[in-house]
């Protein structure tokens, strides 16, 4: 085995893994605040990427403005979905809410295909394209920069989550909704906040993913891998999202190169099955105690 090649493949995997981690954080935020498993996360990500495409390529706005508008659009999408569809169902059977998000994902795919057709597109280049070397190992510049940006965004998010009022409210709601409510935290506002924040994170991840791999109406499938990531990491664990995101990215990259492209997702889902059978609450998740 060639170690340098292995190293390069690993780096590429970690680069992709950072995008998994970023989206997984969005997933975890929603789950922590509202206990909803959002199967439309991949489609929210896709929608964000298409917004960016629409603003930057369609309306020919400057990249920075398109970026800001797309992120805002992602946040608005999250807010809207929470307010219109999710909130009326809170407290209902979690399975219903889960199935509603499946429906939402279909709606978003249809919407994107109606507006932008199903043809795959590529996003305007905005990441630097000078080749990057770490030691002797070559890293594709887009992968490198998307990793860096994702890492920075996650860092900022972690700081907010830890110190900002909203972040504290979110954590309080996550650990005990009733107590948070009694302490004067505006719990519905926290719901909105979590979905808005997650929408923005997803849009960001979508733009990064799109600039690395292009965009299409099928890119929401990415969300399924992210689902695996959060289950492996633990649905309510930000740390788990980060670790599992990088891990799954790395494994997929290795499987894709050494076993063949068709094994990428097979590996992911085999890992999922193993985790579900051995440790269904994930590596860092909280184990829920069953009551009679």
């Amino acid at each position: 085995m060639e170690w340098l090649f292995f190293f390069e493949v690993s780096l590429a995997g970690l680069g992709f893994g950072a995008l998994y981690a970023l989206t997984a954080v969005a997933f975890v935020v929603i789950y922590k605040a509202t206990r909803v498993i959002n199967l439309a996360m991949g489609e929210m990500l896709m929608f964000g990427a298409y917004l960016f495409f629409g603003f930057a390529a369609g309306m020919a706005l400057p990249v920075w403005l398109a970026l800001v508008l797309a992120l805002l659009g992602g946040a608005l999408l999250g807010l809207g979905l929470e307010r219109i569809v999710i909130r009326p169902l809170l407290g209902e059977n979690p399975i219903s809410v889960f199935m509603v998000t499946i429906g939402l994902s279909s709606v978003l795919v249809g919407l994107v295909e109606i507006i932008w057709t199903a043809t795959p597109r590529s996003l305007p280049d905005f990441l630097p394209s000078d080749p990057i070397f770490i030691g002797d190992a070559f890293v594709a510049p887009k992968t490198f920069w998307s990793f860096v940006i994702a890492a920075v965004v996650i860092g900022v998010f972690l700081v907010l989550f830890r110190f900002w009022r909203g972040g504290v409210a979110l954590r309080a709601t996550a650990s005990d909704q009733g107590a948070a409510y009694a302490m004067g935290i505006n719990v519905p506002a926290v719901y909105s906040l979590s979905w808005g924040l997650a929408g923005m994170l997803a849009a960001g991840a979508g733009i990064l993913l799109g600039s690395v791999a292009g965009i299409s109406s099928e890119m929401g499938v990415f969300g399924l891998t992210v689902l695996v990531v959060v289950i492996v990491g633990g649905l309510d664990s930000v740390l788990g999202a980060l670790v599992a995101g990088l891990f799954i990215g790395w494994v997929e990259s290795l499987a894709g190169v050494y076993l063949g492209g068709e094994y990428e997702h097979l590996m992911t889902f085999i890992i999922l099955m193993v985790v579900l059978l051995l440790r269904p609450w994930g590596l860092f998740g909280t184990r829920e105690i069953e009551r009679l």
């Binding site: 569809v85 199935m99 509603v100 499946i102 429906g103 279909s106 795919v109 249809g110 994107v112 295909e113």
Partner: peptide, 21 residues
């Protein structure tokens, strides 16, 4: 006619959401 498939996808989704709600 090109709209058929996306509209269908969207209508499926709307039906799921609408009925559950």
């Amino acid at each position: 006619s090109a709209l058929l498939s996306p509209v269908r996808t969207m209508v499926f989704g709307l039906l799921i959401v609408g009925f559950l709600l």
